[in-house]
Design a protein around this nucleic acid. Structure first.
Lengths: 198, 198, 198, 198
DNA sequence: GATGAATGAGCTTTCATTCAT
DNA sequence: AATGAATGAAAGCTCATTCAT
């Protein structure tokens, strides 16, 4: 960001631009997202866009950071019963994940599809961190001597496996497999993988 | 293809163009792959490119089809001991997968990163078909009444999970986790997932 | 038009582009009229051209519409004595037509030559409408029971005959026949054709 | 023509190329007529095309010359009763003209539409010459002292008027006026114009 | 600060023509 | 003579970015 928006108006402008970027991606896809279109959707001039953001990439960066934070907030506020059953936790997380991806008119799906063109894969990082923490707490309660350092690898594998399997399913216009079965399959796989100490 | 390559020279040209496309993708990424650059790398004029391929997309299609066929051939020629141990089979497949992705200077990684812009996701399909067949044969030998229809879902999950976890790891310039650990983790996860009948 | 010209500068730009298009057609013919050439003649970049016009066709459309309107205006302001002699009216119209076609350095001739590639044949339509109206008024005054519905066919024949005969004459670099004789011939033909009720 | 085709095979090739050009224009319009397409339709290579014709223009020239000759032949073989009634002669000629234009799948219409891009307007010349001759004979029989030099102007006007009025009507996909009425109108106009000595 | 007109490099694609075979 | 692969200039058009107002 070129300039810290100290005044309310500036903050509003930044927020508007990020929001317009999201709407533009939803409407036109990432490839169809152009700076003139974003500016138009935000109701400001292209010039203003460049007043607040170094370039187009910075704007998308900001959008991703924004959504990553929002997701992190959402995850933190999710009531998690760390005393409960592992399968229920995993199943719940996967259900929440599908719901999240289906929401936002495909914004998240489009962003994850294009993760390699994104600033940093902040969303995946956020999810990785969150579930790592969650798993840590849960295992601390249930298996006192669970090898924690191993957990990081497992979470990396689980988060990426789940995320991209979900996206691949959703992105398929005529999927041969129903979402419910994939959700159950993923749940089975994850629970078994986590439950068996290496 | 616009013109069927009848003569030896034509066949060479088609092969050169596909090869140049591969090198261009490796060198410039899919977004940086332009018709002038491909033509230059192939050492021919842009016009020649369009003598053999309807458009840029057709050229990339041809590359993908070519590599998909090569991978399918490679997989078929892989010595597979269907009488053997499941874990060894899975571990071997994952090792082979990592080797394949590391080879070709990142061409496959770049193609899989951009799966949603590819002709059809031929590579993923090839892998899915192959492993589905493999698993079918193996389970027929070892668990006579394994629920086969469920296998399709499992293979979908496994192929996508593995593929994208691998790509995400390789695409990360400074991965915190060594490939060996991810390979072992994936193997664990898959073996357990496959071994337990639902 | 992509962008409505709100500011004076924009209006000037649109006018300049249309003017440059006219000059380009005059200088290079319709086939030699390209977007780079138009932009160069207008003294702006190609990009600017596309800020104001959807595509090349839209620009040519605008030029034709502009000139059609100008011609319509010119025709309306022509002092017409509907009480007067038919031959004088026709003769005057033909003289005016020749003068118009000779003016503009051949722009009109080039446009009419290419009528079938024009937006709609706006120029011919304009002329047809105008002369239809004129003829209607004149005949209403002079022959109370002239078969009006027949008039439409006659005007169609007359306008096209006259227009293309004139253009063919003017387009001929070394015509064997002087314009004056063709003008008189056309006048004779039209007057006789109109005067005799079917 | 680069080279006089002395041998039968060469003559055949030239004829084939001209025929292919005609078919190409009919199928793709003049703008869609490219040398590769012509060669393909003729069943020869582009190289051969350039062996017999200087360039694309020369080929189209040849086609026009060929058809002009054919039309001239057709006209000469038409039984004309120079002793007969003028209106019948004109009416017959116009009917013949419409039939000719409607025939050939639109080749003649396409050529006349693009007369200004044609070698020379050979077709119009042919028609002009023919009708001039015809008129001369007829008038010699009926009006001994008809001013012949005036006839040239009249024929010029009549041929162009008729030709382009017809083409404009045929080229209109949804003409408001039926062909029959235009044919009658043209006949009326021409007969009156010719009948009245200046 | 805000604007939006203006830019221009660069992309994809076409096609008349040539020339080695 | 015949072939057809190869050429490359040139077209239409896009869009991230700048800068005068």
């Amino acid at each position: 960001m070129r300039k810290r928006p100290r005044q309310a108006r500036s903050k509003q402008m930044v927020a508007d631009l990020i929001d317009a970027t999201a709407r533009c991606i939803v409407a036109n896809g990432l490839d169809g997202t152009t700076t003139p279109r974003i500016a138009e959707l935000a109701g400001v001039s292209v010039g203003s866009l460049y007043q607040y953001f170094e370039d187009k990439e910075a704007l998308i960066d900001a959008l991703v950071a924004d959504r990553a934070a929002a997701i992190a907030r959402g995850l933190r506020q999710l009531p998690v019963d760390t005393a409960g059953n592992l399968r229920d936790m995993v199943s719940g997380a996967i259900g929440y994940g599908f719901a999240l991806l289906r929401a936002g008119d495909g914004l998240y799906v489009e962003l994850i599809k294009n993760w390699h063109r994104m600033p940093t894969d902040k969303v995946a990082d956020v999810l990785q961190q969150h579930f790592l923490e969650l798993a840590r707490v849960w295992f601390l309660r249930h298996y006192r001597e669970y090898p924690i350092e191993n957990l990081q690898v497992r979470i990396f594998i689980i988060v990426n496996s789940t995320l991209f399997t979900m996206v691949r399913l959703i992105a398929d216009d005529h999927p041969l497999i129903p979402q419910k079965e994939v959700a159950e399959g993923l749940t089975d796989m994850i629970v078994q993988y986590l439950a068996v100490p290496s």
